[in-house]
Design a protein around this nucleic acid. Structure first.
Lengths: 250, 250
DNA sequence: TCGCCCATACCCAGAAATGGGGAGGCGACC
DNA sequence: GGTCGCCTCCCCATTTCTGGGTATGGGCGA
C-alpha cells in the first residue's frame, strides 16, 4: 500500500532532529519511491540578502558545482515555477506554468548530462516566513515513477516541515499574553486604524485605546506600534487574513 | 486502497469547471473519507483591496449564519492557525500552533452545538497571490477518521488548486515594485527604526528617508507606516527573518 | 536630446504616536 | 478583607509620522 509507505517514510522524516537525519530519511524515501536524487531547499527570507538557510540534496557534485558556481539558482526555472504553484509539478509541465527562456532550456539540457533529467517538485510557502521546495529527480535512463507522485507530494511536504523545524522555527514558547481588549486594539491598529478611530470602533475613549496599545507594547517590549503588530503577527495572535480581509464580512 | 481513492477523488475535483461542480466533488470526497462537512475558503489578491474570494462549504446554515452574523471570521483561530502551518493540522492541535483566547475557545464550544466538532484543515499559500484553506469536519458524534488524514491533505490541496483555477487565476500580479532604497527604508522601518535613525544607518539625510518611506507608502497605497510594512511582508519583499534576525549578525 | 525614474535634500503644518503620571470600578482568588 | 488583573478614563510633554510642496543631479533608454 502506497499510503502506508507515505506514513512510514513521513514518520521517519518528521522525527529527524538534524540535517543529517533528514538527509538520511530523504534518501531512503526517494529510493523507495523510485527516484535517484532529491533536493530540498528552504529559505527563510525571501527578500534580498538573507540567503538559503537549508539546502539538502544528493545531486552529483559535478552538477552542484556548476549550479552554485554559475549562480544558476538566481534564475532557476524550477525555482521560479515553485514560486507560482500551489501543488507539486512535473518538470515537463514547467513551460505551462511559466515562460522558459532559451537559456534556461539550455540549462535543462546541461543538467541532463549531469544525470538530472526529470523530476517532481513540491513547493510550499508561508507568507513572511518560509519559501521552500523539495524535488525528487530521476536520471536520463529512468522513467518518472508516475504512480508515486502523490506520495512524493506528501513526503516533500513533510520534509519541508521537518527542515523548517530543524532550521529553528519552533513555535515560540514563552510569548506574552495580551488581554482581549489589548488584542482588539492591536488588530485594529494592524488594519491601519489610528487610536482615535479604534476608539470610535470599539465605543470607548481615545485615551483608553491609547492605554491598551501602550500596555500591549510594554508586554511585547516593543517601542513602536509597527513592532507590536509584527510581533503579534509573528506569534500568531493575529493573521494576515484578519488584517487584510476583514471587509468581507463587515 | 486509500491512495487510489485520493487519485479518483482528486481527478473529480481537478476536472471541476464551476463552483457547483467543486461543491459536488468536495461533498463526495468528504463523505468517502468519513467527514460530514467541508469548507473551502480561498482569497486572491495582494495589492490594495482588490481581490476575489471563494467560499464553498456545506456547514449547517444555523452555524454559517452565526459565523457570518457575528463576524466571527474576523478572528477565526482556525484561519489564523492556517497561516502558521505548512501542513494540514487537526483542530485539537491548534493551541500548539497559536494562542487561543477564552472567547475563541467558547466559539469552539458553540460550533460543536451546531454540529461542527472536530476537523482537519489543509492550508496553502502563495505569497502575494493566494491564501486558502480547506477543512474537513466531523460532528460531535463521529470520530475523526485518522487513517484518512493524509488523503485529506491531498484532496484539500487539489480542491484549493481547483478553486484557484475556477476563481480566475490572476497570476500576473500587479504588485507594486519598490526601488532598492525604498526597500532598505521599509526594512529598517520594520525593524522599528524611526526615519531619523534610518538616516543615520544609511548615511543619508532625515528628509531623504522620509521621502523614500513616503513614496513606498504611495506605491502600496498604504497610509500608515504599519500598513506599508505589512504589505511588504505579505508580498515577500521582506521577511520575519529579515526583521527579527538582523541582530544575530550585527 | 528629451523624458522618465531614481536618489538626494529641503520646507511646512497638522495629525498621530510615545512615554510618563494618576485614578476608580469590578470580579476572581486566597 | 486584601490583592491582583483587567477595563475604563484623564492629564502632560515630546517625538514621530503624514501629506503637501520644490529642486538638483545622474543614469538610461527612446
Amino acid at each position: 500500500m502506497r499510503i502506508k509507505l507515505a506514513e512510514d517514510l513521513g514518520g521517519g522524516i518528521l522525527s529527524a532532529t538534524s540535517a543529517d537525519d533528514l538527509h538520511e530519511a530523504l534518501l531512503r524515501s526517494a529510493r523507495e519511491m523510485g527516484f535517484g536524487h532529491f533536493a530540498l531547499s528552504l529559505e527563510i527570507g525571501s527578500g534580498g540578502d538573507a540567503g538559503t538557510s537549508v539546502l539538502i540534496h544528493n545531486y552529483p557534485s559535478s552538477w552542484a558545482d556548476v549550479y552554485v558556481g554559475f549562480n544558476l539558482g538566481a534564475s532557476d526555472p524550477i525555482r521560479r515555477a515553485a514560486e507560482r504553484s500551489l501543488l507539486g509539478f512535473r518538470w515537463d509541465d514547467v513551460p505551462t506554468l511559466i515562460p522558459v527562456s532559451d537559456l534556461e532550456q539550455a540549462m535543462f539540457d546541461t543538467s541532463r548530462r549531469h544525470g538530472i533529467a526529470d523530476g517532481y517538485t513540491v513547493p510550499r510557502h508561508l507568507p513572511g516566513e518560509v519559501t521552500a521546495s523539495c524535488s525528487f529527480v530521476t536520471g536520463p535512463l529512468t522513467e518518472l515513477p508516475v504512480s508515486m507522485l502523490l506520495i512524493a507530494e506528501l513526503i516533500g511536504a513533510f520534509a519541508i516541515a521537518g527542515a523548517r523545524r530543524i532550521a529553528g522555527w519552533a513555535p515560540s514558547s514563552d510569548r506574552p499574553k495580551l488581554t482581549d481588549r489589548q488584542r482588539d486594539c492591536v488588530l485594529w491598529a494592524a488594519r491601519g486604524k489610528s487610536d482615535w478611530e479604534i476608539s470610535r470602533i470599539l465605543g470607548i475613549s481615545h485615551d483608553t485605546v491609547t492605554t491598551h496599545v501602550k500596555e500591549a507594547r510594554d508586554r511585547y517590549d516593543a517601542h513602536k506600534r509597527s513592532s507590536l503588530i509584527l510581533w503579534a503577527l509573528f506569534d500568531g495572535l493575529i493573521s494576515f487574513a484578519d488584517i487584510f480581509r476583514w471587509r468581507e464580512n463587515a
